[in-house]
Amino acid sequence: MKYLLLLTAAITFFSCQKGDGDSTVDPVPETMYFPSITDNTWQTKPVSGLGWNESAIQPLKDFLVQKNTRSFIILVNGRIVMEEYFNGHTPTTTWQWNSAGKTLAATTTGIAQQEGLLSINNSVSQYLGTGWTKEPLAKENLITSRHLLTMTSGIKDSSDLVITANLTYMADAGTRWSYHNVFQKLMDVVAAASGQSFETYFNAKLKNRIGMDGFWNNGVIYKIYNSNTRSMARFGLLALNKGKWNNEQIINETYFNESVSTSQNINPGYGYLWWLNGKTTFMVPSGQTVFPGMLVPNAPADMFAAMGASDQRIYVVPSKNMVVIRMGDASDPANPSFAVSGFDNSLWQKIKAVTN
């Protein structure tokens, strides 16, 4: 018995040892891991420990290079399983999220609501004053922050430049789904409700609490978030855990669950600025066509995603405890997408070959 106890103690001791360097290997993949918010050390998990098809990894990497990818990460239970950089990109390189950053605005809006600063069901005019659009006052007053979150403001979408002169009436709020940059008015709502700039509030309530780097800059059309790839992965990990980071609930779970559920009855594939897989129909930007089937047929049905122009991606797959990040140039420069593209399905075909 004494020898058995000694052997058990020895196994326990050595199994708890960590490797040296930037990343460490954790032998207990069943537990969820969160990296430190004070440095960029991150635990890893070898592909061999997951039973994945290792022979399919090189074809995946070749595809990523072919499709102008600059960085790619797969997390499982929070640990890095793959982390690749191409074309001069490095772990510290800053890159734009494009419309994938809409999900940051949605999350920050939810935090402001849970702090009692605003309600997404209130008229936007309650926070910005009347005249923030060129709509008739009665129509403008119909628009709530929830309509901005769900792309159902009814504002005419002929111009993506969000200036008052362009915010004209097309339909009553809640009756038409249309992908539109007017979502950025949520940033103005949060700023007005909190009495500080959106970025100051975002930094204090979200960015700093999960250890992200990055900044918002004024793009040609709207504010765009920029960060390194691991910061994008941190936000994906927060989403995988329904707004919880380690032991702290950053964003209310009820609100987060609303964010990644069908938010209106026009486009089932859309939540609060998140794209949703696994629905019976979906719509895409720049049109009113309703397409049958799933958004990304090769991806798991429970996958939800932040999608930005030139194929900036955060894919979150709860059933696999997985987060996938892709940053880079447009996969098809001749036909760059605003959000959803055929690239998603092709990429997931390659990922499935590795993970199944």
Rank of each mutant, 00 (worst) to 15 (best):
Trp95Tyr: 11
Asp39Glu: 09
Tyr33Val: 01
Ile155Ala: 11
Ser231Gly: 14
Glu199Ala: 15
Ile314Cys: 07
Val76Ile: 13
Ser159Tyr: 14
Asn226Asp: 04
Gly342Tyr: 01
Met32Asp: 05
Ile73Trp: 00
Gly293Asp: 12
Lys279Asp: 04
Tyr127Cys: 00
Ser55Thr: 13
Trp97Arg: 13
Ile163Asn: 04
Lys2Tyr: 14
Thr152Asn: 02
Ser263Asn: 02
Phe14Asn: 01
His147Ile: 04
Leu60Ile: 13
Ile143Cys: 01
Ala305Tyr: 08
Thr262His: 09
Glu115Gly: 03
Ser319His: 03
Leu206Cys: 03
Lys350Arg: 14
Asn203Tyr: 06
Ser197His: 01
Ala171Glu: 10
Leu142Phe: 11
Ser259Glu: 01
Leu142Ser: 09
Ser159Thr: 10
Asn356Trp: 09
Asn356Thr: 08
Ile210Arg: 07
Gly49Ala: 06
Thr175Trp: 10
Glu199Asp: 12
Arg313Phe: 08
Asn228Lys: 12
Asn277Ala: 15
Asn87Leu: 06
Asp332Gln: 14
Leu75Phe: 00
Leu273Lys: 10
Val290Asn: 13
Glu115Lys: 15
Gly243Tyr: 08
Phe215Gly: 06
Lys134Asn: 15
Asp160Lys: 11
Ser48Ala: 12
Asn181Ser: 15
Gln184Glu: 11
Tyr315Asp: 03
Ile111Phe: 04
Thr152Gln: 03
Gly88Asp: 12
Gln17Pro: 05
Asn77Thr: 02
Ile163Arg: 03
Gly269Gln: 04
Glu115Tyr: 05
Leu295Gln: 05
Gly342Asp: 01
Lys139Ile: 04
Gly236Arg: 00
Arg70Glu: 13
Phe72Tyr: 12
Gly214Arg: 02
Asn68Asp: 14
Ser99Trp: 07
Phe63Ser: 10
Ile266Asp: 01
Gly88Ala: 05
Gln196Leu: 03
Asn246Gly: 03
Ile224Gln: 06
Gly308Gln: 12
Ile11Met: 05
Glu30Gln: 15
Thr103Asp: 06
Leu186Tyr: 10
Thr144Ala: 03
Asn241Lys: 07
Asn141Val: 06
Asn252Thr: 05
Leu161Lys: 10
Leu104Arg: 00
Ile120Asn: 07
Gln349Leu: 12
Pro35Arg: 07
Tyr272Leu: 02
Val290Ser: 15
Ala105Val: 14
Asn68Val: 10
Val317Lys: 02
Asn247His: 06
Asn335Pro: 05
Pro292Gln: 09
Val162Glu: 08
Lys205Gly: 06
Arg79Lys: 08
Ala204Glu: 10
Pro27His: 12
Val340Cys: 03
Ser158Gln: 13
Ala233Arg: 01
His147Glu: 01
Asn40Trp: 15
Tyr201Gly: 07
Lys320Gln: 09
Val220Phe: 06
Val324Trp: 00
Arg209Ala: 04
Gly21Ala: 11
Leu167Pro: 00
Gly110Asn: 08
Gln17Val: 08
Asn166His: 08
Asp20Thr: 12
Asp62Ala: 11
Ser346Phe: 10
Met294Phe: 09
